[in-house]
Amino acid sequence: MIYFLLFWEFFKVGLLAIGGGLVTVPFLFELSDKYAWFSHQELADMIAISESTPGPLGVNMATYAGFNTAGILGGVIATISLTTPSVIVIVWITRVLSRFKENPYLQSGFYAIRPAVVALILGASLQLFRLAVVDVLSAVLCAVFFVAIHFIKIHPIVYILLGMAVGIVLKL
């Protein structure tokens, strides 16, 4: 029955956590208080691991919490339950949007949303900047990478792999 409980609890997190990965954190603290699935300390470790492994933060945390609680199947179930509400809601929204595509109100809404999104990305990049650029060397590297990315259009994965190599070689 643990699987059903996992499904239900993570489904709720997926449904209520609006705004992405870190928003799931308070919900997970609540789960930690409610069940003996993981302690606060384990949760803190989970956040650290999720933040420094690839993939969306919320997904990583659901997998970790589910796996800790009930093994591999638990990890899979928690992750799928977390994403199910998104899929349902988004599919529904897409249908509504495509029906009202030509509606001037909808278009004005999007017209105003886009500059706001640019601001949100600016905010996120400042946060990442503070985490990544910690000394002169990292600042120089960041500038060099930026110039390269701007002028040499290759797949970002190549740059990410380069970053890993540079990090290891320079012992960043």
């Binding site: 500059p115 640019v118 600016l122 985490l131 190599a165 540079v166 960043l172």
Partner: peptide, 27 residues
Amino acid sequence: IHAFAGVRIVVVALIAETLISFWKKGI
């Protein structure tokens, strides 16, 4: 640890580039 430190720097540069193209497109 070193690889992640390197990746974080690249991610900042990649996002800065995205910011420029979104700015041109959205504003």
